[in-house]
Computed example of a mutant assay.
Amino acid sequence: MNLFDATLPNFLGGLAVLVLASFVTWVIRRGPRVRRYTLLNSATPEGSPVLHLTTLRAGTIIRRDVGRGMERFELTKVQMPDGTYAAEPMDRYV
C-alpha cells in the first residue's frame, strides 16, 4: 500500500465536506430576503414616510392604500440613504 492509497479516503471525505458546505451556503443565500421599501411621495398622517416590508423581488408591482385610495408601486433595486429600497409610484405620472 503506497502513500496515495492511504490518503485517498481522507482527501475524498474532505472534498465531500467542502462540496456539501458550498451547497448549503448557496441554498441559504438563495432564500427570500425581507426588504424594507419606502413608498416614494407618500406619507403617514404624522408626516413620516410609508414603509412596506416584503420578500418580493424588484420589478414587482404592489398595491397599497396610502391615504388617497389604492395606488400601485413598483419595487426597485435602488437603495436609499436610510437603508430602505425605493418603491416608485406608478399612477401619479400618467
Rank of each mutant, 00 (worst) to 15 (best):
N2C: 13
L3M: 12
F4I: 09
A6K: 13
L8Y: 00
L8N: 09
N10S: 14
L12Y: 06
L12A: 04
L12F: 06
L12W: 00
G13E: 03
L15H: 15
L15N: 15
A16C: 15
V17M: 13
V17R: 11
L18N: 03
V19Q: 13
S22R: 14
S22L: 13
S22Q: 15
F23N: 12
F23M: 11
F23G: 14
V24H: 10
V24M: 14
T25L: 13
T25E: 10
R29K: 10
R30L: 11
R30S: 13
G31D: 06
G31T: 08
G31Y: 07
P32I: 03
P32R: 01
R33G: 07
R33I: 07
V34M: 13
V34T: 15
R35C: 04
R36A: 06
R36L: 01
Y37F: 10
Y37G: 07
Y37A: 04
L40M: 03
N41L: 09
N41A: 04
S42D: 00
A43M: 08
A43V: 08
A43E: 09
T44N: 03
P45I: 09
P45E: 01
E46H: 08
E46S: 05
E46T: 08
G47F: 08
G47L: 01
P49A: 08
H52N: 04
L56S: 03
R57A: 09
A58F: 05
A58V: 06
G59R: 00
G59E: 08
T60F: 04
T60L: 07
I62F: 10
I62W: 07
I62E: 05
I62K: 02
R63V: 11
R64L: 03
R64H: 01
D65R: 03
V66H: 06
G67Q: 03
R68G: 10
G69E: 09
G69D: 04
M70K: 03
M70N: 01
E71D: 01
E71N: 09
E71R: 00
E71C: 02
R72Q: 14
F73D: 07
F73P: 06
E74Q: 14
E74S: 12
E74K: 13
E74H: 13
